[in-house]
């Protein structure tokens, strides 16, 4: 099975994130970068499926040159090779433009199964699987907490508010996973050494056959009008429980008309 796992490098959520004043895009220089956590679950699922059914796992990442760190990490977990879509023309791409570029690369390299983390910790839109499925014309299997395949058909549990839906499709398909699905492995020392020799193909927009007019900030289908730091919350009332804490909490709730 030819499996492609999409990996995004994101700013560390533990560090403060800001937008750049000049163009209202994410200031990626000012914060530490790491692999989007949910993508590690996607990589793990890809590796498990390849181990069970044979085949190769290719990492696909779109991002600045620095994203190569995240690609190496993915390779050190055990993926076979990588494709890095990197081009200044991609900077500022919104979700729609991003999906256009990634779909173009997927169309070029081919796949039986594309696996994504169900959302990234920076944008949190959770729509890339839907966008790719729409653009590629293949089934959308998103928010999977469980996956089974025989190489022809694929069955998942799709997480829902009330529990989950059992969903079935035939391959090729786009899959996105939630963190409940597995426990990602840590790269071994051997894995880290091996990753250094694994092939990483770098593609520009021209290489990937993407029309530069359809990606990047200028092609964005929405624009930021303004942004500002949220005003700090007003300091609240903090009481120490002296045997009456529950009562005081109830008084507050009553005053606010919650009870």
């Amino acid at each position: 099975m030819n499996i492609v796992v999409c990996v995004k490098q994101v700013p560390d959520t533990g560090s403060e994130r800001t937008l750049k004043a000049a163009d209202s895009t994410l200031d990626r220089e000012s914060s530490d970068a790491l692999i989007n956590e949910l993508d590690e679950y996607a990589i793990e699922e890809g590796l498990r499926l390849a181990e069970a059914h044979g085949g190769e796992v290719t990492i696909l990442s779109m991002g600045p040159p620095k994203a190569s760190e995240s690609i190496r990490k993915a390779l050190s977990m055990g993926a076979d090779k990588a494709v890095h879509l990197v081009d200044d023309g991609l900077a500022g791409s919104d979700a729609l433009a991003t999906s256009e570029a990634i779909a173009a690369v997927l169309g070029r390299i081919g796949f039986d199964l594309v696996i994504l983390g169900s959302e990234s910790t920076d944008a949190r839109m959770g729509v890339l699987a839907a966008l790719l499925a729409e653009r590629l014309g293949v089934p959308q299997l998103s928010f999977a907490s469980k996956v089974e395949t025989d190489g022809q058909t694929i069955k998942i549990h799709r997480q829902a508010d009330y529990g989950y839906d059992k969903v079935e499709a035939s391959l090729p398909a786009v899959l996105s996973v939630v963190e409940k699905i597995n426990e990602p492995r840590y790269p071994s020392f051997k894995g880290i050494m091996a990753a250094k020799k694994k092939p990483v193909e770098t593609l520009s927009l021209a290489d990937a056959g993407v029309d530069p007019a359809r990606v990047g900030l200028a092609a964005s289908a929405s624009e930021v009008v303004s942004f500002a730091k949220r005003p700090p919350r007003q300091a609240g009332t903090i009481v120490k429980d002296e045997g009456d804490g529950g009562g005081k909490a109830a008084e507050f709730l009553a005053a606010q008309k919650f009870i």
């Binding site: 403060e16 994130r17 800001t18 937008l19 209202s24 964005s220 289908a221 929405s222 624009e223 930021v224 009008v225 303004s226 942004f227 500002a228 730091k229 949220r230």
Partner: peptide
């Protein structure tokens, strides 16, 4: 919740 952004669709 740290930043409030206002934006509009242009296409």
């Amino acid at each position: 919740g740290a930043i409030v952004v206002k934006s509009r669709v242009t296409a």
